[in-house]
């Protein structure tokens, strides 16, 4: 009798994006500042990929390139099947509109709009009717725990609640790629953890990929994988939560 088959290792999820050999420098030719130097980076669907490193290492530049808000000087950016370097400005605008949800470090909420109006902005930009946009915005706000606060101006809410609004805004149009730039840097430790738990729950969806840029070690434990960056290069990729914990014992 044949020995029982060993259980198969789960297949890796498909890549959501793959950046290879990225170069980017700023400034005049005689005093150029190199932001990226042959940087390679990838992220898969259904995972929370964290990009970490010290300030000035090129994280934000990499994030700008993978969202199509900045062109690389050299290298290949394949995001959700699109080669970003070949897309026109109009195509990049549409690409961002349809496929990317943004969570900014400073929230970037429009102070003169109500909470639900802020959340509805990506839907309105896509041409969604106001009534439908309002309904979807209110629904997602309930998911992030802000039911009852929809009609208030954002400034009346705490920092953590404002970041929840930003998260709701990033998710409301069901994008594939959710990009978070230092999402906890303006928050206290406890609120930061709540926000990360929320993001982690959304990253469990196999149709989504969450990329978090941070240099806050308090949130490293929420990453499925982690890319460490220094001087414009990815220096190490930690492929499992266990590897991350081992590399950063303080978390």
């Amino acid at each position: 009798m044949a020995a029982p088959l060993a259980p198969l290792a789960p297949l890796p999820a498909p890549l959501a994006l793959q950046l290879t050999g990225l170069d980017k420098a700023f400034g005049p030719p005689d005093s150029r500042t190199v932001a990226l130097n042959q940087a390679d980076f990838d992220a898969r669907l259904g995972e929370l990929m964290m990009l970490v490193g010290p300030s000035g290492c090129g994280k934000t530049t990499l994030l700008s390139i993978l969202t199509g808000t900045l062109h690389a000087d050299a290298g290949e950016s394949n995001v959700l099947g699109h080669r970003l370097g070949t897309l026109s400005q109009a195509e990049l605008t549409r690409f961002r509109r349809e496929h990317i949800g943004f969570i900014f470090q400073d929230f970037n909420l429009i102070a003169t709009l109500s909470v639900w109006e802020n959340v509805a902005v990506p839907l309105l930009i896509q041409g969604c009717g106001r009534r439908e946009a309002e309904g979807r915005a209110r629904a997602i706000l309930a998911q992030v725990g802000l039911k009852g606060r929809e009609d208030e101006p954002p400034k009346r809410l705490s920092g953590g609640q404002q970041q929840r609004i930003a998260i709701a805004r990033a998710l409301v149009h069901a994008p594939t790629l959710i990009v978070c730039d230092e999402p906890t840097s303006a928050l206290d430790s406890r609120t930061g953890q709540q926000v990360m738990e929320l993001l982690t729950s959304f990253a469990r969806d196999p149709r989504r990929c969450v990329i978090v840029v941070s240099h806050d070690p308090r949130i490293y434990r929420y990453a499925d994988r982690m890319a460490e960056m220094e001087d414009g290069r990815i220096t190490r990729v930690l492929a499992t939560p266990a590897a991350i914990a081992a590399a950063h014992p303080s978390i």
Binding site: P14, L15, A16, L17, Q18, L45, N78, L80, G81, H82, L87, S88, A90, E91, T93, R94, F95, E98, I110, T112, L113, E117, V121, L124, I125, Q126, G127, C128, G129, R130, A133, T176
Partner: peptide
């Protein structure tokens, strides 16, 4: 790798613009 998507159609039709403009106008005024 993520399956290749359909090409992006970036030409905004009049209907698309018309559907976006009222909401964005309201946003601008707010």
């Amino acid at each position: 790798m993520h399956p290749a998507p359909a090409p992006l159609d970036c030409a905004q039709t009049d209907a698309e613009l018309n559907s976006i403009l009222p909401a964005m106008n309201r946003l601008a005024l707010r």
